[in-house]
Computed example of a mutant assay.
Amino acid sequence: MTGYSEEELAQMRLDLTALRSAASKGITKLRNSVGEEITYRSLEEMYQQIARMERKLAPQATVRQHYPTFRKGT
Protein backbone atom coordinates (compact mmCIF):
# COMPACT_ATOMS: atom_id res chain seq x y z
CA MET A 1 0.00 0.00 0.00
CA THR A 2 1.29 3.46 -0.85
CA GLY A 3 -0.40 5.38 1.97
CA TYR A 4 -2.15 7.73 -0.48
CA SER A 5 -5.90 8.00 -1.03
CA GLU A 6 -7.35 7.26 -4.46
CA GLU A 7 -7.94 11.00 -4.96
CA GLU A 8 -4.31 11.81 -4.13
CA LEU A 9 -3.10 9.11 -6.50
CA ALA A 10 -5.35 10.44 -9.28
CA GLN A 11 -3.99 13.97 -8.75
CA MET A 12 -0.44 12.65 -8.73
CA ARG A 13 -1.05 10.84 -12.04
CA LEU A 14 -2.40 14.06 -13.58
CA ASP A 15 0.58 16.02 -12.27
CA LEU A 16 2.99 13.39 -13.59
CA THR A 17 1.40 13.53 -17.05
CA ALA A 18 1.60 17.34 -17.09
CA LEU A 19 5.19 17.27 -15.84
CA ARG A 20 6.26 14.78 -18.52
CA SER A 21 4.57 16.87 -21.21
CA ALA A 22 6.22 20.09 -20.02
CA ALA A 23 9.64 18.43 -19.73
CA SER A 24 9.38 17.03 -23.26
CA LYS A 25 8.72 20.56 -24.53
CA GLY A 26 11.46 22.15 -22.41
CA ILE A 27 8.96 24.16 -20.36
CA THR A 28 10.06 24.58 -16.75
CA LYS A 29 6.99 26.44 -15.45
CA LEU A 30 3.58 24.79 -15.06
CA ARG A 31 0.49 24.49 -12.88
CA ASN A 32 -0.28 21.33 -10.94
CA SER A 33 -3.71 19.71 -10.55
CA VAL A 34 -4.68 21.96 -7.62
CA GLY A 35 -3.75 25.16 -9.48
CA GLU A 36 -0.39 25.89 -7.87
CA GLU A 37 2.22 27.35 -10.19
CA ILE A 38 5.54 25.52 -10.04
CA THR A 39 8.81 26.70 -11.57
CA TYR A 40 11.66 24.21 -11.87
CA ARG A 41 15.24 25.46 -12.02
CA SER A 42 16.23 23.04 -14.77
CA LEU A 43 15.07 20.11 -16.86
CA GLU A 44 17.29 17.88 -14.71
CA GLU A 45 15.27 18.89 -11.64
CA MET A 46 12.09 18.05 -13.55
CA TYR A 47 13.43 14.61 -14.51
CA GLN A 48 14.32 13.96 -10.86
CA GLN A 49 10.78 14.88 -9.82
CA ILE A 50 9.35 12.63 -12.53
CA ALA A 51 11.43 9.73 -11.21
CA ARG A 52 10.27 10.39 -7.61
CA MET A 53 6.63 10.48 -8.69
CA GLU A 54 6.99 7.30 -10.76
CA ARG A 55 8.45 5.51 -7.73
CA LYS A 56 5.53 6.66 -5.58
CA LEU A 57 3.00 5.50 -8.15
CA ALA A 58 4.68 2.18 -8.93
CA PRO A 59 3.02 -0.81 -7.31
CA GLN A 60 5.01 -2.04 -4.37
CA ALA A 61 6.52 -5.42 -5.07
CA THR A 62 6.20 -7.96 -2.36
CA VAL A 63 8.93 -10.46 -1.80
CA ARG A 64 7.64 -13.98 -1.60
CA GLN A 65 9.90 -16.69 -0.40
CA HIS A 66 9.28 -20.23 -1.48
CA TYR A 67 10.64 -23.16 0.43
CA PRO A 68 10.29 -26.33 -1.61
CA THR A 69 9.47 -29.53 0.18
CA PHE A 70 10.37 -32.97 -1.02
CA ARG A 71 8.82 -36.30 -0.26
CA LYS A 72 10.37 -39.62 -0.81
CA GLY A 73 8.45 -41.51 -3.50
CA THR A 74 6.50 -44.60 -2.42
Rank of each mutant, 00 (worst) to 15 (best):
R55I: 03
K56L: 09
E7M: 02
P68G: 03
G35D: 00
T2C: 04
Q48G: 11
L14Y: 01
K72A: 14
L30H: 00
R20W: 05
E44S: 11
K56W: 04
K56F: 09
N32L: 05
M1A: 13
L30C: 00
A58T: 04
I27N: 02
H66A: 07
L43F: 07
L14V: 07
Q60N: 08
S24D: 15
A18Y: 07
V34M: 03
K56E: 07
K25F: 03
H66R: 12
R13N: 08
M12H: 07
F70G: 04
R64H: 09
A58Y: 04
T62Q: 14
H66P: 03
R71P: 02
R31M: 02
S42K: 14
R41W: 09
L43N: 11
A22C: 13
T2A: 05
G35S: 01
F70Y: 05
A22K: 08
E37R: 07
A61S: 06
Y47N: 10
M12D: 08
E37I: 12
V63I: 06
L9A: 01
E45K: 10
Y4G: 04
E44D: 15
T17P: 05
S24T: 13
Q60C: 00
T17S: 06
G26E: 02
K72R: 14
Y67W: 15
F70V: 08
M53L: 06
